[in-house]
Amino acid sequence: MSSLVLRAGPYSVMVERRTVLVSLALVGAGLALALAGLCRGASWATPSEVLSALAGQGDSVVVIRDWRLPRVAAALVFGASLGLAGAVFQNLTRNALGSPDVIGLDAGAYTGALVAITVLSGTAAQLAIGSVAGGLLAALAIYVLSLKSGLSGLRLIVIGIAMNAILTAVNSWIELRAELEVAIAATGWSAGSLNGVDWDEVRLPFLIIGGLMLVLVTLSHAMHQSALGDELAITSGVGLNRLRLLLVLVGVGCTATVTAIAGPIVFIALAAPQIGRRLTGAAGVPLVPAALTGAVLLLAADLVAQLLLAPMALPVGVVTTAIGGCYLIWLLFREVKRP
């Protein structure tokens, strides 16, 4: 495995050549899918029409820049955000199953969002705060229940899966009890959907996710160091308690921000970090491949969701759930068999 050392003055990092190549390939795939997403519609545009529309020329500027672009951008950014959330929690729990969508953090965030809609007036800020609070409360509950066995271990995962089931039931109950129009809106959203996303809706989430990514950049080195185990992490100078708290906050933030806008989209956080890890052959669960894989996966799933039963658009969550369910079963089998 060959590596490259990048130096600029006093700054230097070492990266694996393969990670760089795979990342570039993923960026390429993301751009190609984005172009396809911008072309797709009741009447398809050609790539050259799309490019000129992006430059502000032609008849379809409004359709492509204001209708299709926000959806494509949301799929990429939200996918990256979910991939990062998955990588953060898989690193924290040192388990491929320790992903926010499996252990009930998505469901918790969605509970928070539902409460914001049904009890409060459901403004964008209330939705965002509600889902972050819901995700954090779910994380806290899982943490308290699994304290005895430590943060890494199958016990935490099993408790998380139970938490996910409970919260999903709570969410259904809230939807059933809610007034009709709220319930209809919430049900479309509960599968996880990017239908009808526009610029006004995504501006704030994009800013939040961008901020969380910056925080994560500052934590990533310590996060990978902590993969050596608690003891070596501490004795090699990682401030482990502070790191864990920040990682939980960032991970929940990444997943809850997406949930607040698009509902709980499962599978991306679970699968993207592991696919990224296998593609790059990297040690541990690296962040950049997880984010890029997440972006590509969510955009691809959203395209499938729109094309499968066209002209009717499925919620993207239906597609990710269908694929993710199979993957989760396989992963559970492997995990339980592991000594």
């Binding site: 990978h224 003891e231 004795t235 090699s236 100078g237 990682v238 401030g239 990297a282 541990g284």
Partner: peptide, 21 residues
């Protein structure tokens, strides 16, 4: 944490390397 980790190193009994490193 990093300042004291430059002075005192430790090798624990139980060790687990990250996968694939």
């Amino acid at each position: 944490p990093k300042a004291i980790a430059r002075e005192i190193g430790f090798l624990p009994q139980q060790l687990a390397a990250p996968e694939n490193i």
